[in-house]
Amino acid sequence: MSQAKTVKLRIKRQEAPAEAARYDRFEVPWLPQMNIISALMEIRKNPMTSDTKQKVAPVNWDSNCLEEVCGACTMLVNGRVRQACTALIDHVAPAGEEITLEPMTKFPLVRDLVVDRSRMFEDLKRVKAWVQLDGTHELGAAPRQSPENQEEAYPLSRCMTCGSCLEACPQVNSSSSFIGPAAISQVRLFNLHPSGSMHAKERLESLMSEDGLAGCGKAQNCVEVCPKGIPLVDSIAQVSRQATKHMLFGWLFG
């Protein structure tokens, strides 16, 4: 008889950015349809390392919806950035291999697998990623939009601000302040909207500095890792064209 199937995990633990990191090993019972999150949930029920048999604090991680629409549980699974909820154990470790979990590296660490992604939300302020509404009172129907316009906008609008694209981008690092693909793609989205486009200029201008569009090194890693398949490289190219046009001819039209 074979032994009951288990899931083996090796998890980077760190109390705070300034403190030393270590890796803890855990082994939990395998369950059908299990994903990384359910494995982490099992650890909490008996937080003991599998090799040194030490009682440790349960692992802290970030998660919420568990169906890959909120973006919270983004982390490195075997070195690759992705959402932990869609990382099914049987896919990641088909033969029961040990799985390594680490926090993303491009954001300040909070604890264990949790990082602080607030810079991404600040970037959305900078590029004015919104339609400038007159108010929420009744003002009748919005401008009509073609189905084609909707079909271009919808995929862009599915960005969860998860940070995968920033994590994978070589231009986002400690010595650069490149804004990254996510915010640029939002500029494309709002410049597409009939009323959003009225403020396209301001958004483009927010990306004219060194850390804006010019920061992209065209490595195309972002598109590889985006869980929603957002055409980020296209977005950067499109917004760059809009910016160039605005820079060259913007003064003509005021």
Binding site: E138, A141, P147, Q150, A153, S195, G196
Partner: peptide, 21 residues
């Protein structure tokens, strides 16, 4: 109805009919 129009004005990418409604 007014709430859905407001959301459309905010930029929610609602699915469209061929006429753009």
């Amino acid at each position: 109805p007014g709430i859905v129009y407001m959301l459309d004005r905010m930029g929610v990418p609602f699915n469209r009919t061929p006429e753009g409604l």
